[in-house]
Simulated assay, not measured.
Amino acid sequence: MTPSRAPMAPTRPQNLLAVGLLAVVVGNLLTRLFYADIPSLPIAAAVVLGVLGLAELAGGFVLRNRIERRNDAPPVDPLLAARALLVARASAYAGSAVAGLWVGLLVHTLPDAGTVTAASADSVTGGIGLACALVLVGAALWLERCCRAPDDPESERRPE
């Protein structure tokens, strides 16, 4: 008896949303408890996920071109595609969690941003971090989509 090989289901947006909402609660709680004790947040901490997202976006285009064999591209090793899929899935969940943490920070800092200098600077960093985390989530979902095998025209034919 051979095990059935069901295709891996794509990442469900509601799962990403659930992770993000949980991270909002945790991020807001941690910010309320420890905000006075932490130093100012560097913008570099916010930009890292955006850079990773851009790399995954570029990787998705390259992988898609190779899977579809455009421009005489070499074929894709199935293990490479599987690894790219795992990276995409992990990045989507990590980006969702970090986006939630940034939202938790923003919920705490934005109300004071007009009067407190540190809250203003951290709100800018939090906004950049949120945008970069969302770039990572979007790029990860794109990379995951690019890992799909093209439809086999032979499998669509019906026997006559």
Results as ranks from 00 to 15, higher is better:
W102V: 01
A99L: 02
V124I: 07
A88V: 00
V98F: 09
P78V: 04
E56M: 14
R70I: 11
E68M: 15
P39H: 03
G59C: 02
A94F: 07
H108D: 02
D72Y: 14
G126K: 01
A119D: 13
P78G: 08
A36L: 11
A133G: 00
V87Y: 04
L101E: 05
S120C: 04
A58L: 14
R89N: 03
D112T: 11
L52E: 11
H108I: 00
A44D: 14
A94S: 07
S123I: 01
R64T: 06
V47L: 12
A46Y: 08
G127F: 00
N65V: 00
S96L: 01
A99I: 00
A44I: 06
I128L: 06
D72S: 13
P74Q: 11
V124R: 11
S123W: 03
P111G: 03
S123G: 04
L85V: 05
A118S: 09
P74T: 07
A99E: 12
D112Y: 15
A81V: 07
G127R: 05
S123R: 04
L52F: 14
Y93R: 09
A55Q: 12
G53F: 07
L86N: 14
L85C: 03
P111S: 02
R64N: 12
G53H: 05
Y35K: 12
R66G: 02
R64S: 04
S96A: 12
L54P: 12
G114R: 09
R64Q: 12
A46V: 06
V124Y: 13
P42M: 02
